[in-house]
Nucleic acid binder design. Structure first.
Length: 470
RNA sequence: GCUCCCAUCGUCUAGAGGCCUAGGACACAGCCCUCUCAAGGCUGGUACGAGGGUUCGAAUCCCUCUGGGAGCGCCA
């Protein structure tokens, strides 16, 4: 990849980091920094009324958790900052003046209610709602008159009348839009605040961004930004528009249903590498069918392997990668992952052993809870089917097991041999009644590993109890 | 309402006119392995939204429709 490549992620702190945005960030990161270029992070907090600093912190934390890192951002300036739009006012002011001076922008005194009426009229007439151009040709005296009325002007971009804007979208291919369909758009609010179209495009250019990956919803707005940058004489990045993420029913991913934020997934115990493996394949081919280590993600990422249709978020597939990720945990990582679920009074040694023992049978940390009672407490009541298995084995079987356990102790191999000799049973007929009696369930880690983890007194009590089942 | 985008198994997708009686992965079912579950191995079912063209030949190209999405904000 070209080392001059600069990509960016530009979150707006209006909430938690959404899965769709996380995917956009991941892809941008892979296209940039992870491929030998640069990746920067810019906080789009130009609208002071929305969101808050807590969201900036949480989003950056989520990105870090996912394994993304940036060369420049709000926490590290490289001289092209600041990287928060709220701190870039002076930069914007200079550009606004230039635009106005050169006739590319003009003050607009229309009020929101007036604009709203105009929109309704256009809609009713079957016309697309566009700014009617009321203030486009105002002369000095007309402007003075509006100011005298106490009106505060917004600044509008003067879209050239008859032009066709053409550009090559990084994922969509060639695009062509007639300027006439655009309508003059606002660059600066009446209260002085900058507008997305403006600061987003300007910042990308000023920060040296060469490739912008963003959501599909920005595709039809791209011509505006291209026009604006051109008027400013600023170089434009190349844009690539990613299909949106939708839920199982095909509706846009909404914060209301299910876990759709990175934070929620993390809280439920999903591992970052699992989320990464899933996101890497969501609407993108090029990754092998097998697990990919996060460090190798960039090698599997390619712009021309991006899909063009909306991608469905599918928990079953996420869970598949989660299992893969859990399986790859080292014992230390497993302890850390299980940390909040592990009984606080257990020793470091016990916690380690437990994590190692259960790792293969868990998908989420919360799944571990059931096993604690298996190892230390009460078993859940047996199902009718399980009782049948115990009854079929019969009291003699468990009395023999008790005797074998006295002989062999927690050495499961020896216990098995002993019991086989005493009862003549083998295979499932031998082990299943044992498993059920000992754990109260039919699944779980190998009995050979499980047995030593259960205190001897509990083992004896359970075997004795099973002997009493008829 | 207008403009634009998208459309292959349930899901992620391969497929850039003949290699497709459409391939892989996840999920599902069965079998094998196995003390169980998981993992692994094998097998199976399920898809080119509809209708018209173009062509010797279309999942692939064109048109219409249908369905889904986005944009048209002094939101980002």
């Amino acid at each position: 990849m070209d080392p001059k490549t600069v990509t960016r992620f530009a979150p707006s702190p209006t909430g938690a980091l959404h899965l769709g945005n996380a995917r956009t960030a991941l892809f941008s990161f892979l296209l940039g920094r992870a491929s030998g270029g640069r990746f920067i992070l810019r906080v789009e907090d130009s609208d002071r009324g929305r969101g808050g600093p807590e969201f900036v912190a949480s989003q950056l934390a989520d990105l870090t958790w996912l394994g993304l890192s940036w060369d420049a951002g709000p926490d590290r300036d490289d001289g092209r900052g600041p990287y928060r739009q709220s701190e870039r006012g002076p930069i914007y002011d200079g550009l606004y003046k230039k635009l106005e001076r050169e006739g590319h922008a003009y003050p607009c005194y229309c009020t929101p209610p007036e604009l709203d009426v105009a929109r309704r009229v256009q809609l009713a007439a079957g016309q697309p709602p566009r700014y009617p151009g009321t203030c486009r040709g105002l002369d000095a005296s007309a402007r003075a008159a509006r100011v005298a009325e106490g009106r505060l002007p917004a600044l509008r971009f003067r879209v050239p009348d008859s032009r066709v804007i053409e550009f090559e979208d990084l994922v969509r291919g060639p695009q062509s839009v007639a300027a006439a369909t655009l309508g003059d758009f606002v660059l600066r609010r009446a209260d002085g605040g900058p507008i997305f179209f403006f600061c987003n495009a300007v910042d990308d250019s000023l920060m040296g961004v060469t490739q912008v990956l963003r959501g599909d919803d920005h595709l039809s707005n791209t011509p505006r930004q291209l026009l604006l940058l051109q008027a400013l004489g600023l170089p434009a990045p190349r844009y690539g528009h990613l299909p949106l993420l939708v839920d199982a029913s095909g509706a846009p991913l909404s914060k209301r249903r299910g876990s759709t934020t990175v934070g929620e997934l993390r809280e439920r115990g999903y591992l970052a590498a699992a989320v990464g493996n899933y996101l890497l394949r969501l609407g993108h081919t090029g990754a092998p069918d097998q697990w990919v280590e996060p460090a190798d993600f960039a090698r599997s990422f390619s712009l021309d392997r991006l899909g063009r249709a909306p991608a469905h978020f599918d928990t079953a597939q996420l869970d598949h990668w989660q299992r893969e990720a859990v399986r790859r945990l080292t014992p230390e990582q497993a302890v850390h992952w299980l940390d909040a679920e592990l009984p606080a009074d257990w020793s470091a040694q016990e916690r380690r052993e437990l994590a190692g023992l259960l790792r293969g049978n868990l998908v989420f940390p919360a799944d571990a809870a059931d096993w604690f009672s298996v190892l230390r407490g009460e078993l859940v009541p047996l199902t009718a089917e399980d009782r049948t298995v115990l009854a079929e084995a019969g009291p003699a079987f468990f009395e023999a097991a008790l005797a074998a356990y006295r002989e062999a102790g927690a050495d499961f191999g020896a216990l098995g041999r002993e019991l086989k000799q005493r009862t003549g049973r083998k295979g499932a007929a031998l082990f299943m009644p044992l498993r059920i009696a000992l754990t109260g369930r039919r699944d779980g880690p190998e009995l050979a590993a499980l047995l030593p983890a259960i205190p001897a007194a509990l083992v004896r009590a359970r075997l004795a109890g099973a002997a009493g089942v008829h």
